[in-house]
Design a protein around this nucleic acid. Structure first.
Lengths: 219, 219
DNA sequence: ACTATCTTTGACCAGATGGTTAAAACAAAT
DNA sequence: ATTTGTTTTAACCATCTGGTCAAAGATAGT
């Protein structure tokens, strides 16, 4: 209890001295992301965390609770950048540049999260409902309407072509995320599973996507 | 044995008289797609097929073998249209129109397959290797080079702007597939989980995507 | 030193799960 | 009717899996 309090408050410990809870979350994240909720084994998570299975259940009473926590942490990670972009007062082009750049960086750091989230959401869409409260929807903040208005303004000014906020957002996210999520397929179909070529392809797409989207809506 | 031969050759039976093998494949497809390889239960597949679990193992000795078959059938379904488009001699714009239209139709018929394939491929990328032989890669037929050449020609003619075949193909596939694969997320983020609104959104995107891509590469 | 609370462990359990087996039911050929 | 080969079933099994429990270690406050 004391240990937990100190760690959570000052976080002065090194990675090797991490408290049990964090070790569990790290291990669970790894196992769940690789094998999915149904494929993951509590024993494997305990082993990877270097602890006993009973201790695992002591911290997170059930597999479901542990999974929910891991899923929520993973999901949350990818929301702020979307909001940040939508909220900012930059012109549309800069918003797109900002978003694509930052999202692709985030993806490079956590390449397995989107696939994990999509997989599990496909298996059980209701998980999302529980997280909705903690990760405010765009609509609630009128962020979509804001983007819509902004687009209209720039259309009137003759800067960009008309496009709905939903379509623009969907396009941007699709073009960023899909090549990561469907990596095994695209790598196989386009580059005969050559990992290095695919990495180069992704690297090349960083600038390509930015320019592609901006040009596509430029008036 | 006799029954199988007759059915496979003449297929004169109605859906209710289907042979056991087909009933198994249908049931397995449903269960595997909804719960994934690790989440699926042989018992549930047997129940859904209206047969005994032992009979299930009689036809497909192991869960893995059954899964492989189902996965292969699902994956194969989405390859021909890509090939057909790449092989055809139509101009690029028509190719895109043809592909988007046909792919979105296919997706409407089988909306769960892409998510299923991506999920399982994420869990175990090696499955794809086994299927590669049966679903010829684009490279082997020089289909990518062919598209690349075609693009170059039309660029020279001043019809389209320069773009690599890989990038174009990736964009088209991403814009078609991602909104289906990530449906639970986008539906939540954009439309507060309103299913009807999302369906309308997808319907609207049928034409939108076609025009968007074509305009984006129009010289 | 003693107590109270929190953390960790080894042993254990009930139910689920993939898979097997031996025998019965069936269908076709002779 | 008998034989031969295929299809289907009920009963069974070894193993795995999420979860529990009682007891032992730690840790801090008195």
């Amino acid at each position: 209890m004391w240990l937990k309090y100190i760690v959570n408050t000052y976080s002065f410990m090194t990675e090797h001295e991490m408290n049990t809870e964090q070790k569990i979350l790290d291990a669970a994240k790894e196992v769940f992301q690789q094998k999915g909720m149904t494929g993951a084994r509590m024993q494997e998570i305990a082993d990877k965390a270097g602890i006993n299975k009973a201790l695992l259940h002591y911290y997170y009473r059930t597999k479901d609770k542990l999974f929910e926590k891991v899923f929520e942490l993973a999901f949350s990670l990818f929301i702020p950048k979307v909001k940040e972009m939508m909220i900012s007062d930059k012109p549309v082009f800069e918003k797109i540049e900002f978003f694509v750049e930052n999202y692709l960086n985030l993806l490079q750091k956590h390449p397995y999260i989107p696939g994990f989230v999509i997989s599990e959401l496909n298996r059980n869409p209701e998980i999302l409902v529980k997280i909705i409260g903690k990760n405010i929807q765009l609509k609630e903040n009128n962020l979509l309407e804001k983007l819509e208005r902004q687009i209209s303004e720039e259309v009137v000014k003759g800067i960009i072509k008309p496009i709905s906020a939903e379509n623009l957002l969907t396009n941007v996210i699709s073009l960023c995320l899909f090549p990561i999520v469907a990596k095994p397929i695209l790598r196989g179909v386009l580059f005969e599973n050559d990992e290095k070529m695919y990495e180069a392809f992704l690297e090349q797409r960083r600038d390509f996507v930015k320019e592609y989207i901006i040009n596509s809506i430029k008036a």
